[in-house]
Simulated assay, not measured.
Amino acid sequence: MFEKKDSYTPTEAKRAYDHLDRFVAEKTMSPRQAGAHRRHIANHTRVALKSSYTARAAQRAKTEIVKLTEAGTITIKSAAAYRAHITKRTQAA
């Protein structure tokens, strides 16, 4: 039915969330089971980070982090860590 993976990219996580929504709508899976799978996905989503960012690239990356958080693809704590990573590695203009 639904196979858990060790790691998800943000795109894979979004796709998996859509599958879970469909399973719940079809009553193939209970909302409680889907919630457990969503927590697993959120805890195993990996975002590619760079070693340095320009000011513009940092802004784009932070905007993407906000979108992922709003979609529920990554947790709030992970988003904060990613933003800190980006801020720390942003090159001063």
Rank of each mutant, 00 (worst) to 15 (best):
N43H: 12
A42K: 14
A16F: 12
E12G: 15
I74K: 12
A25M: 03
V24A: 05
G72T: 09
T75G: 14
H85T: 00
V66A: 15
T9I: 09
V24Y: 02
A57K: 14
D21I: 12
Y17I: 10
V24N: 08
E64F: 13
S78R: 15
T87N: 03
A61P: 01
F2N: 08
A16E: 11
H37N: 11
T45K: 07
H19S: 14
K5I: 09
K77L: 14
E3D: 09
L20G: 11
Q33N: 06
P10Y: 09
K27V: 04
I86Y: 06
H85F: 08
V47C: 07
M29G: 03
A34D: 04
V47F: 12
H37L: 14
K67A: 11
H37D: 09
Q59M: 05
A81R: 13
I41P: 06
A84S: 15
N43S: 10
R32I: 06
R32E: 14
S7K: 13
V24L: 05
A61I: 02
Y53W: 01
I86E: 07
D6Q: 13
S30H: 10
A79P: 01
H44G: 01
A84C: 10
T87E: 04
A25Y: 03
A71I: 08
A92W: 00
H85Q: 03
I65W: 03
R38P: 08
F23H: 10
I41M: 13
L68D: 11
R39G: 05
A81F: 05
A80G: 04
T63P: 01
A48Y: 12
A93Y: 00
P10E: 08
Y8N: 10
K5G: 04
H19A: 12
A34E: 02
T11D: 15
R38H: 07
T73Q: 08
A71H: 05
F2Y: 09
T90Y: 00
K14E: 12
L49T: 15
Y53P: 00
A36W: 12
T9W: 13
E12Q: 15
